[in-house]
């Protein structure tokens, strides 16, 4: 049975006067992978940055509409954005481990700064997160060296571990493989499939094969508008909208 974890309702977003999202509504189902596709500049990244309220840190950025997480609007006045971001983790386009911290600290810092003091708990959670991200075998002997010495793919999995340590319910991936080689990409994709057992996942990608490989649902955005949302195989085989068809057959973008 499909359970809705997140519901994006009539969401619009602006940078200063420039509107980048126009009245977008998408349901996000629990323990499924939802892909968001569309040509560059269509508002994909902005959309997921609205889901963890990261959009609003840009000066003059504005949001209207609702994002319901388990039925509660995260834009309600009594909601602390920090709490939202703990529940909704994010992995960025460029691997961005904290450069002056060790591998261990990169994963531990989120726990420490969110008030967890028990050393044992921290260590256990960190090791688990690194294991879950599939990095453990590669780094178990250098947990206390700098994360910046890892390869790009390893750095990205370190960033995933950093997010996992906080036990998020939803994980947002913002083109996580665009800076990686094919082998690292495959590893991340396998990891995403593994993670959806316990998490709800949204992935922004401009790689259509990737969307087809990892996602169950796909939303196609064009010029800030939601053109089509459907199960992934429907989008790729029988798109309803002409523009979706043009995009997936490579006619533009």
């Amino acid at each position: 049975m499909l359970e809705t974890k997140l519901e994006i309702k009539n969401l619009s977003a602006w940078y200063s006067e420039h509107q980048v999202l126009k009245n977008v509504s998408i349901p996000i189902y629990k323990n499924k992978v939802t892909a968001i596709i569309g040509p560059s500049g269509c508002g994909k990244s902005t959309l997921i940055r609205c889901i963890n309220r990261l959009h609003e840190i840009v000066p003059n950025a504005k949001v209207e509409g609702q994002v319901l997480l388990d039925g509660k609007n995260i834009y309600d006045i009594d909601v602390d954005p920090m709490e939202v971001r703990k529940k909704v983790g994010m992995v960025f386009q460029q691997p961005n481990p904290f450069p002056t911290m060790t591998i261990f600290d990169n994963v531990a810092v989120g726990l420490k700064l969110n008030g967890i003091k028990d050393k044992k708990v921290i260590e256990e959670t960190v090791i688990n997160a690194i294991k879950e991200s599939g990095l453990y075998e590669e780094v178990k002997n250098k947990l206390y060296s700098y994360g910046t010495h890892l390869s790009g793919g390893q750095q990205q999995r370190l960033c995933i571990a950093r997010t996992l340590a906080l036990r998020p319910e939803v994980i947002l991936f913002d083109e996580p493989c665009s800076a990686l080689d094919p082998i690292s990409t495959a590893k991340i994709e396998d990891l995403i499939l593994e993670l959806k057992k316990n998490h709800t996942i949204i992935i922004v990608t401009h790689n259509l094969q990737q969307a087809a490989r990892v996602s169950e649902y796909t939303a196609f955005l064009y010029l800030g508008e939601l053109i089509e949302f459907a199960p992934t195989e429907k989008i790729f085989t029988v798109p309803k909208d002409k523009r979706t068809e043009d995009y997936i057959t490579g006619k533009f973008g």
Binding site: F98, P99, G110, N114, T163, L166
Partner: peptide
């Protein structure tokens, strides 16, 4: 991206500045 990574972990604004950005 470092600042965003920290905020995305639900780390407070001032802790982000003090423990993440200044640390970097």
């Amino acid at each position: 991206s470092i600042k965003e990574a920290s905020l995305a972990l639900g780390i407070n604004y001032w802790k982000t500045m003090f423990f993440i950005i200044l640390n970097t």
